Simulated assay, not measured.
Amino acid sequence: MPEYMVIVVRSLMTFFFVLLMARILGKKQIAQLTFFDYITGITIGNMASAMAINASLQPINAVIGVTIFSVLTLLIARGAIGSLTFRKLVEGSPTILIKNGDVLEKNLAKVNITFDDLMMGLREKNAFKLSDVEAAVLETNGKISVMKKTEYNPLTPKDINLPVESEHTPSLIIIDGVLMSKRLNYLGYSEEWLLGEVMKQGAKDFKEIYLAQIDSTGKVYVDLYNDEEKQQQVKQKPLLSAQLRKIQADLEGFAIQTNDQAAKQMYYNQSKEIQDLINHINPYLKE
């Protein structure tokens, strides 16, 4: 077999083997990686690259090496979860750099951090003045966490006893021009209502939308394929037609939800009247 074909085969084998090891080790955010995780990742990467392109290295030897490192990393991670003492031994513990507004010079020297490094970490947290900082901690991933003094924290609605409506996770309801109908129905909204909302933002059809997201308050964010269309004035006649269809859909929804037969019939009758109105004025709403 030609040498380049050997490299191709070894590279493919290495890729899927490393993918398997990565899945076994699990997910961890980059910002949460400790120095140990960083070094282990580099070592496994070097072993994998050697397995892919070093023809003198037996693949089985590289597989054994990567497997041992991966298994040990996994065992250490599991051990760190189950034992506080073991976690401190492997990952270390956070170091207090500023306490009660005072810089702890001995702790800075202990972790080899200069005053310039400290100030850079504070500025990354929007703390440009030492006088604003109550406490600062060097985390095990090398990041500096900052707690500002109470008087310098942003004012929140809770601080002034202002009641606000709780918000929940927003949901994407249109992705690449495709409407997520089941998701929209689960949230309790109709397609007619959504069409009216997106038309307010310059879209004539769902296919013109790249992404649309709805939050827990019913506010819809729309990103069009052609952003220039969003800047154009929304035409009122098609919007009126969409709003009438929304009202009709809402009435039908009310009829389905109620158990009162009289109310149910009333909603259906009103829905039929709206449909008759739409049929009557629809020719005048076309542009």
Rank of each mutant, 00 (worst) to 15 (best):
M199V: 07
M13D: 00
M120W: 15
M47R: 07
I247P: 04
H168M: 11
E208Q: 13
Y210W: 12
G142N: 06
R10E: 03
M21F: 03
K230G: 15
I7F: 03
Q257L: 14
R123I: 02
E191P: 00
G142M: 01
A127H: 07
A255T: 03
T150C: 09
R183N: 13
I175C: 09
E167Y: 08
N126P: 07
S70R: 02
F15H: 05
L84F: 11
F206P: 03
G253L: 05
Q275H: 11
V220P: 03
A62V: 01
M13H: 07
V90T: 05
F15A: 01
N54K: 08
A262C: 10
Y4P: 06
N153M: 13
G177V: 06
Q29M: 12
N226P: 01
S241I: 15
Q243A: 13
I278W: 05
H280N: 13
M51H: 04
I144A: 09
A203C: 07
E192P: 00
E151Y: 13
D117H: 12
K28G: 04
I247Y: 10
K158M: 13
K246C: 11
Y268V: 08
S49F: 12
D227V: 10
V6L: 14
V6D: 14
P154G: 00
M120G: 00
A212E: 07
D132S: 10
N112G: 05
R23L: 01
G218C: 06
T156V: 11
L194R: 08
P170R: 00
T217H: 14
L104F: 00
K237T: 11
Q275E: 11
I96C: 01
L74A: 08
I68Y: 02
D132F: 08
M1T: 01
L108K: 10
W193I: 12
P170S: 08
M180Q: 14
E191G: 00
L122R: 10
